[in-house]
Design a protein around this nucleic acid. Structure first.
Lengths: 345, 345
DNA sequence: GTGAAAGCGCTAACAC
DNA sequence: GTGTTAGCGCTTTCAC
């Protein structure tokens, strides 16, 4: 055998499929994209050659040539929060029916990181942006506007959106829960939440909550904040702290279900009469709550629905069937569970 | 005022920045990428113009021209599993120190979906692929090999990797837990897990577990599987079912911490003596367990470390400092908690 | 139904 | 330090 020089390994291109099948590049491209009329015979030849080579088209080149990119940027603060995966499922469900696909970026609740993520995302010229929250710094807002892509801000409608917005009113959610608690006759109310100056949604909920209390001449009797660590454990610890410090509390409102569940577990272990002596409520409508001995009251923020509606807007903007910004306010739903209703309905 | 025709809104390009700053496109490109020497004066001019316009470079064009893409594809079965976000944090931690950035794809444990996700990902010509599991169909393996990118399969080392691999041996993890349980004198062992023929990791763990029992002349005394729904609730229900069906069980091994936690809650409510009369163990080393009244025994699969090591391999391959495939086996660590140790150490 | 030519917005390579 | 030229791998457009 003669030593034939091995050609340098070069990335595979349309041209390779073209040569392998004896069909022009243009027609190969048509087959691979299901565009235009191609005779069944050529079609087969092309597909066989492509499969044989294991060819995967280069979307970078395709996107540049067509200036069409099938990506939708989804920008969220965290993945470990339970909340955001649900929104993502909603988004995916809808986009799966289209040619669009989500790309996720995580900001860890840090504005400077959000700025960077938006910049990186936009540099890929996505077909749309879905971003959590309605509070963004000026640089972020300017980039989003200049990009000339459909933008949907989600999970909070209290403020001025860049473009479209889908979600609950966090302030209203806080108010609603306060009203429900007061209606059950509770009045010595403690609040437990995250120490997260940057979680605007939790903050607004708290504001709505205190505002509604104030309207009835009440205020939060005691409060406790945490950061980091196992939320379940923190809920447990904070509850103990609060109940020992202020022993006449008759209700505990938690800013999320996980700390609420921790608190509930602790209360049950202490043999506290719930909801007779002490009522409890969380926030989110987490699936986790199903598995506790007693069902914690909570409020479903319609996460999946939010994701679905946001994705629908992007899809409609992308195919041209929608041109105007939309505003969709989702209705939060209180779930009374076993820990909020003092009087039987 | 005269009616001046409004020019059609055209996507912004380097050229716009070039014109606005009076500097050549090439030099603008240099400034924006921090490449080569540019005088401070021109630099300033360019940056000012770019900021003013809100210009975001087009990475599609950049990637095509340079054949460099700073994306790393991360392909995982699910986001709602608690497990994968941890791996992702590990990956992000390491990639944040580089110019690389992760892009996540989710397969929902479905092979046909995995095939599609891989295809889509590869079509963007990423700098590397990190993919959960070592079982992939032939089409997937062929694509991954043909792509000529570094590939790291994670979370399971039992099998033939395409390229590099990082993770625990799931079989060994199952065996280790079996040994630990037997050493404590438990012998009537029940198993509770997901009915997921496609979760190869859970399956292998179970295989390793039964294999170790068999070596001691034992087998699983009873078992129960679930799918879908709230894992905490399912754990609770399955435990009840199992304990009622086979009332002499002295140990329950759960395939994940969430169902384990559900089971533990139920047992505690029933007043069962743990671990005197019944031992329990889960799997994953979930943070959640910190918040329970009793700490469930579990096994930490080193998720964050797995993510970190995988990302390090990709980064090293990308910058050329590594050329060979690597195999990194992570050591799983048993956490005895309060539910596995019958005899005080 | 198929092919040839031009060009998407950037960067590599080289000139000055 | 800065500019010019060619081309990355596709798709658009138009010709046949």
């Amino acid at each position: 055998m003669t030593d034939r020089p091995i050609p340098p390994r070069r990335p595979m291109t349309l041209r390779d499929v073209s040569e392998a099948s004896g069909v022009s590049e243009m027609t190969v491209s048509r087959v691979l994209r299901n565009r235009g009329d191609v005779s069944p015979a050529t079609r087969e030849k092309v597909l066989a050659a492509a499969a044989e080579l294991g060819y995967v088209p280069n979307k970078i080149a395709g996107a540049l040539a067509s200036s069409r990119v099938n990506l939708v940027s989804v920008i969220i603060p965290s993945l470990s929060n339970m909340v955001f995966p649900d929104v993502l499922s909603g988004i995916t469900e809808v986009l799966d029916e289209t040619h669009l696909q989500p790309v996720v970026g995580v900001t860890n609740y840090r504005p400077e990181r959000e700025e960077k993520v938006i910049y990186e995302m936009l540099s890929w010229r996505p077909s749309g942006v879905i971003i959590a929250g309605i509070e963004h710094n000026e640089a972020c807002r300017r980039m989003l506007r200049a990009a000339d892509v459909p933008v949907v801000e989600i999970m909070d409608v209290d403020g001025e959106p860049v473009d479209s917005v889908v979600g609950i009113s966090q302030r209203r959610a806080g108010r609603m829960m306060a009203e429900a608690i007061l209606k059950q006759g509770f009045e010595r109310i403690g609040f437990l939440g995250t120490r997260m100056p940057l979680d605007h949604r939790a903050r607004k909920r708290f504001e709505g909550f205190t505002e509604a209390l104030a309207r009835h001449g009440l205020e939060v009797a005691d409060q406790e904040f945490y950061e980091g660590g196992s939320a379940l454990k923190k809920g447990r610890e904070m509850t103990q702290t609060l109940m020992q410090r202020t022993d006449d509390l008759d209700f505990l409102y938690y800013s999320n279900d996980m700390i609420g569940a921790g608190g509930l577990l602790w209360c049950l272990e202490q043999g506290i009469d719930i909801p007779g002596k002490l009522g409890l409520a969380g926030f989110n409508g987490t699936e986790l709550l199903e598995g506790l001995a007693m069902k914690l009251a909570t409020m479903d923020a319609g996460r999946r629905e939010t994701g679905r509606e946001a994705a629908k807007i992007i899809a409609a903007r992308a195919d041209g069937s929608l041109t105007e910004p939309r505003r969709i306010e989702i209705e939060p739903k209180i779930s009374y569970g076993d820990t909020l209703r003092r009087y039987k309905p």
